[in-house]
Design a protein around this nucleic acid. Structure first.
Length: 816
RNA sequence: GCCGGGGUGGCGGAAUGGUAGACGCGGCGGACUUAAAAUCCGCUUCUCGAAAGAGAGUGUGGGUUCGAGUCCCACCCCCGGCACCA
């Protein structure tokens, strides 16, 4: 009786063996070319669900493939270990965030190990360990010294439920907290920022990156570059020193269409520009704005609101006085916080003018424009009218002409504006890396000296949902001495945004234990940049964007430290695994736990099934029936190999066919692997097994060819199903380990088809098929076609217009 | 509204402008079995037909081409992201 496939048993056995043999430990001394394959590090939520497997298993398969192809492969794993849930658990269940996190890590590590990946656990990175966050703080100091970190009072997004500040990116659906869905409001706080805007232009350059178009577009939109001009308007207001005010516009060519001037309600000039007779109305409007939920402001389908200040601005190009209004659709944080109102050519200004009965003057004419009333804003190009000396110019030329004029006369200049804001890194929370800064009554803001790092989190903080960092109420932490004057001083009690931790972890993997710096420079130079980075698309504008900034900024701070421009050369986003029609989520209760499938069908089956569902980038639906198909297949592979083979009469044709299929399969699986097309790769391996089953029954190829085929099947399957292949490999007494074997090579000539089915079409419709040698030439092929009785009957009595021959594919006869 | 990605059998999905539906699931039929499960073999896009075969067919409508799931134009629907950014 042949031994049955018992996945659980062999998986445990081999995982232990690989571990004791240090099979997957990786170093820098290899003379093989390096390959750095990285999966986005998981957050320590405590449970590895099928989504994690979907991110990690295919990525491990690719890393194993690269390894077999002869690369020295780094494929590490670690944990994003700081963050809110740990602290919420502390508040709710009284368990210390450290304990909660470490427990979760231990569980997740166990689950991860059951997957059978090639992670070198010696390189594990855990972002909440002082040996790690010491360097996160060190990076902050570097930014501070370089003038890239600053402190400013800023209105911040405040989630009243999480009691913390949220980055713009963490606010979803206009005004909702990304984590808890609560409405977010505004609060003014002293915050630390990183000057990511300084890199806006360079961050727009993706030229050397193999990234999905989608992510590049999202980042471009996030940066929101607009080219235009900054133009000064004159101010005439008694008692006001400021004599002009700037606006940013992308359409300087419409300047003659300005009929009013707009300011954000928050603009500091508003009180001075408000005339006494408008004071009441303006004050009322401003207080109304304050009462509005923040998200209302950015909802477009809302009637325009505003108030007239009573004073006027002067359009320097035509000397016109236009009324100054305030309105909440002008945002204080974009451009100059002031807008020139051109109702004829901007939809928002048009609505505003309609609402408040302000004049609408067209200055860009469509060819069909006949001076009629303007019924809607036209924001396209056209011919300039009502624009004095510019009349008759195209708007494109007018743009340049107006810019030239304002630059010549000193009214303004061409400029570029970005939507991107600086990165707010302060968090009023305990479970993060403390910002290494001390406030001294004498010396002011003082960075903690490098040699005093890390600034450790006090273990005994109290966790209360106060809305302020527990560190604030921890006197042993807060009270310190000034590094400069040694006098009493206080520590910053905010911690760093966890995106700060995840912006550099991939550097740390190069040399996890480095203690003289964040990493060993030589090792970093060997491994970085990451060759293939895979993970979810939800990190498009946060993690991926911040990491790019981090690398660029550090490169400019010290080229000896970082000597490359981009962290991730190739990026790939896997899709989402759904279950019962929807995205898996705890609240819906439709989360698939891989563990039970691993213990019954085996990790190899779960790995292969996830890859078989569909193209990796599209994701797909989990099906309990579907996974059984893969389980059956691996059982068939097991039996195929274990049942042995005894040749009977050798058939030359069968021999040739099997040889061809072996080479074709090697070719196809290799190509699919490289393109991360795992679903078709597995389909190809299934076809291969199906064919081998027939051969096994027919017993018509020689034994050595059979052995070659089996060996090949195991090698091609090894990255996908590392355990079963290792077991079968060892049972055939091949040299341990299959995972140290090279990827099989194919002979291109043998991979080619010898015989092809030629399709015969009449007027493009398939009418017949004929098996021919692949080398067939046009003359022979057409001759053959005419011998077919079917074709004869179809063409009888018809006029033959032409025949088209596509080598190896089709003969098409065009008849009338 | 704008920017991405999709729309193919009962289902997941394959198809360098050249045989649509590979591979898998499910279903049907058969073998093995006292029986069931498991396993193995065969069939399985739809319509008509006993069959041979014929016709239709890749979201909709046009177009290019000897030939379109694939290219072009217009539109519909689904998913993701962004959105009063001047």
């Amino acid at each position: 009786m042949v031994h049955r496939y018992q996945p659980r048993e062999i998986e445990n056995k081999w995982q232990e063996r690989w571990d004791t043999d240090h099979l997957y430990e990786v170093g820098e001394s290899s003379n093989l070319p390096k390959f750095y394959a990285l999966t986005m590090l998981p957050y320590t939520s405590g449970d590895l669900h099928i989504g994690h497997w979907y991110a990690m298993a295919p990525s491990d398969v690719y890393a194993r493939f690269k390894r077999m192809q002869g690369f020295n492969v780094l494929h590490p794993m670690g944990f994003d270990a700081f963050g809110l849930p740990a602290e919420n658990a502390a508040i709710k269940h009284g368990i210390h965030p450290y304990e909660w996190t470490i427990n979760n890590i231990e569980k997740m590590r166990r689950q991860l190990k059951s997957m059978g990946a090639i992670y070198d656990w010696n390189r594990e990175v855990i972002s909440c360990h002082p040996e790690y966050y010491k360097w996160t703080q060190w990076f902050f100091l570097k930014f501070y010294q370089a003038g890239l970190a600053y402190r400013a009072k800023a209105p911040v997004n405040w989630c009243p439920n999480c009691k913390t500040v949220l980055a713009n990116e963490q606010v979803v659906g206009g005004n909702l907290c990304e984590r808890c869905g609560t409405e977010v409001n505004k609060k003014d706080l002293e915050q630390w920022f990183l000057k990511i805007t300084q890199y806006a232009e360079e961050l727009l350059d993706f030229s050397d990156l193999i990234w999905p178009e989608k992510i590049k577009t999202m980042q471009k939109n996030w940066i929101g570059k607009s080219e235009g001009a900054e133009i000064s308007f004159g101010l005439e207001c008694e008692g006001l020193e400021q004599k002009e005010i700037k606006v940013f516009t992308t359409r300087p060519d419409t300047i003659f269409g300005v009929t009013f001037f707009l300011l954000a309600p928050e603009n500091s000039l508003v009180p001075q520009l408000t005339t006494p007779d408008h004071q009441e109305e303006v004050a009322e409007y401003i207080s109304w704005c304050r009462r509005q939920a923040d998200y209302m402001r950015t909802s477009m389908d809302r009637e325009k609101t505003g108030a007239f200040l009573g004073s006027y601005a002067i359009n320097k190009l035509n000397g016109e006085k236009v009324p100054i209004w305030i309105t909440d659709y002008v945002l204080p944080s974009y451009g100059t916080g002031a807008v020139m109102g051109v109702p004829a050519h901007d939809e928002r200004d048009f609505e505003f003018a309609r609402k408040f009965h302000l004049p609408i003057r067209p200055v860009i004419a469509l060819p069909e424009h006949a001076g009629n009333e303007v019924l809607q804003a036209y924001d396209g190009q056209g011919i300039m009218i009502n624009s004095g000396e510019f009349n008759g110019l195209s708007s494109e030329r007018g743009y340049e002409a107006v810019c030239d004029l304002i630059e010549k006369r000193g009214f303004g200049k061409r400029t570029v504006t970005y939507r991107l804001r600086d990165w707010l890194i302060s968090r009023q929370r305990y479970w993060g890396a403390p910002i290494p800064v001390v406030y001294c009554p004498k010396c002011g803001t003082v960075p903690v000296p490098e040699e005093d790092l890390p600034v450790l989190l006090p273990p005994n903080a109290e966790f209360r949902p106060t809305g302020e960092s527990p560190l604030k109420y921890c006197p042993e932490f807060v009270n310190t001495t000034c590094p400069i004057c040694s006098g009493p001083a206080q520590r910053e009690t905010d911690t760093l945004d966890t995106f700060m931790c995840s912006s550099w972890y991939y550097l740390r993997y190069s040399s996890t234990r480095a203690d003289a710096g964040p990493f060993d420079i030589q090792k970093l130079k060997y491994w970085l940049p990451v060759d293939l980075y895979t993970g979810g698309a939800e990190h498009a504008v946060m993690h991926l964007f911040y990491s790019r900034f981090f690398i660029k900024a550090m490169r400019d701070i010290d080229r000896n430290l970082i000597n490359f421009d981009e962290p991730f050369k190739r990026l790939f986003n896997q899709g989402i695994i759904a279950y019962h029609g929807g995205k898996m989520s705890k609240s819906k209760g439709n989360v698939i736990a891989p563990d039970k499938y691993v213990s019954t069908m085996g990790a190899d089956t779960v790995r292969a099934y996830l890859m078989f569902i569909g193209p990796w980038e599209l994701g797909g639906g989990w099906s309990d029936r579907g996974i059984r198909g893969i389980s059956r297949w691996l059982n068939r592979v097991w039996n195929l190999v274990e049942n042995g083979y005894s040749p009977d009469v050798v058939d030359e044709k069968a021999k040739k066919e099997l040889t061809h299929i072996i080479h074709k399969t090697i070719k196809k699986t290799g190509e699919d692997m490289e393109n991360l097309r795992f679903n078709t790769m597995l389909a190809c391996l299934m076809e291969f097994t199906n064919h081998l089953s027939k051969v096994q029954e027919d017993r018509n190829v020689p034994d050595d060819l059979w052995q070659e085929a089996i060996k090949c099947l195991l090698l091609l399957l090894a990255p996908t199903a590392p355990h079963i292949t290792e077991e079968l490999w060892s049972r055939r007494n091949y040299k341990y380990s299959i995972h140290n074997q090279p990827w099989p090579k194919f002979d291109a000539r043998l991979a080619e088809e010898e015989q092809i089915t030629l399709a015969i079409q009449i007027n493009g419709k398939l009418r017949d098929k004929v098996l021919v040698p692949a080398s067939i030439r046009e003359a022979e092929a057409t001759e053959l076609v005419w011998e077919r009785t079917k074709i004869k009957s179809y063409t009888k009595g018809k006029e033959i217009l032409k025949t088209i021959y596509v080598p190896g594919r089709v003969v098409n006869i065009v008849i009338k």
